[in-house]
């Protein structure tokens, strides 16, 4: 009786759940479809129709412009390089730092954690950070886009608490087998942390991909501009500084071109997600604890 009630309730819930999530998914995706559609539309159509999902006349003009030179392809290459390299560096630094901080008995642990949290709220600002980057000789190097932002304290704290919640049985077993802390970290903790790694690979990769501000400050050589900087340029010039744009020398960018650059700059990181998804969808601890 009780159970039946539950299952029928459960069924109602299931239907409701499917429908609401489907609506949510559509509401988040349809605007992006508009962006894609607008990137293939003519300027006249974008001006005439407020919203559409399929353009009346399909034109490739915006994409022809983007790919008429190697500028955008090169900038995507820069973005990919920075993203891959940056994510590897960030993950290594974050994991190696988070693990010791997750051990309660570590002397000075609280002090270090406090110092880390402090930096999340307090920072010296743009100018002193620039001075440090410059004195390290990193200006105009892609490392300037990585090293100054290598550890996100926010992520560090979360990874630390993930480590804290790992079951201790395996570690103890390894220690009895004669593993040092180093051994425990590489052989037990890291393999157990696949979902964490997958999650923070995603977080760091998206961060590096979306960042344009550091490139703006540290990179003068335009051959090293990441694609987000070009996107930012196209989007902002005609908007925030409205009325200030130097229109006498440059026409404002066409709407379809802006949309096409959004598509080109977003698709690579979007398709990255489903690949990582299956990793953090896996049950993690179960198998290893049992085995």
């Amino acid at each position: 009786m009780h159970k039946m009630h539950n299952t029928s309730m459960g069924r109602v819930f299931d239907v409701f759940n499917h429908i609401s999530l489907l609506l949510l998914g559509l509401s988040t995706f349809i605007p992006f479809v508009y962006v894609i559609a607008a990137s293939f539309a003519t300027e006249a159509e974008i001006a005439a129709r407020p919203f559409f999902l399929v353009p009346e006349t399909i034109t490739l003009a915006a994409y022809e412009y983007i790919f008429s030179t190697n500028t955008f392809i090169r900038s995507i290459g820069v973005s990919v390089l920075v993203t891959v390299l940056g994510t590897v560096v960030s993950l290594l630094l974050t994991m190696t730092m988070a693990y010791p901080l997750s051990r309660h008995h570590l002397l000075g642990r609280n002090l270090i954690l406090n110092l880390v949290v402090f930096t999340m709220v307090f920072n010296g600002g743009m100018i002193p950070t620039y001075m440090v980057v410059r004195s390290l000789g990193l200006l105009d190097s892609l490392w300037a886009l990585i090293l100054p932002v290598a550890i996100n304290p926010f992520y560090l704290i979360i990874v630390k608490s993930f480590f804290q919640n790992l079951p201790t049985e395996l570690e103890e077993a390894a220690r009895i087998d004669g593993c040092s802390d180093m051994g425990v970290f590489w052989r037990i903790v890291i393999p157990l942390s696949k979902p964490v790694i997958a999650t923070f690979t995603l977080f760091y990769a998206v961060f590096y991909w979306n960042d344009f501000f550091n490139a703006l400050l540290y990179i003068s050589d335009n051959a090293k501009w990441p694609v987000q900087l070009l996107l930012q340029q196209l989007m902002m010039v005609a908007n925030v500084d409205f009325g200030e744009m130097d229109v006498m020398l440059q026409d404002p960018p066409e709407e379809s071109l802006k949309m096409a650059v959004v598509v080109v700059a977003t698709i690579p990181i979007l398709i990255f997600y489903p690949f990582l998804q299956k990793h953090f969808a896996k049950g993690i601890l179960l198998g290893s604890v049992k085995g």
Binding site: W225, L230, M235, M236, D241, D246
Partner: peptide, 19 residues
């Protein structure tokens, strides 16, 4: 010539001044 994207020229200008 150092070219700075016009969208955020102000920030870069101030940094250069400070450096």
């Amino acid at each position: 010539i150092t070219y700075v994207p016009s969208s955020n020229y102000d920030e870069r200008f101030n940094i250069t001044l400070a450096s």
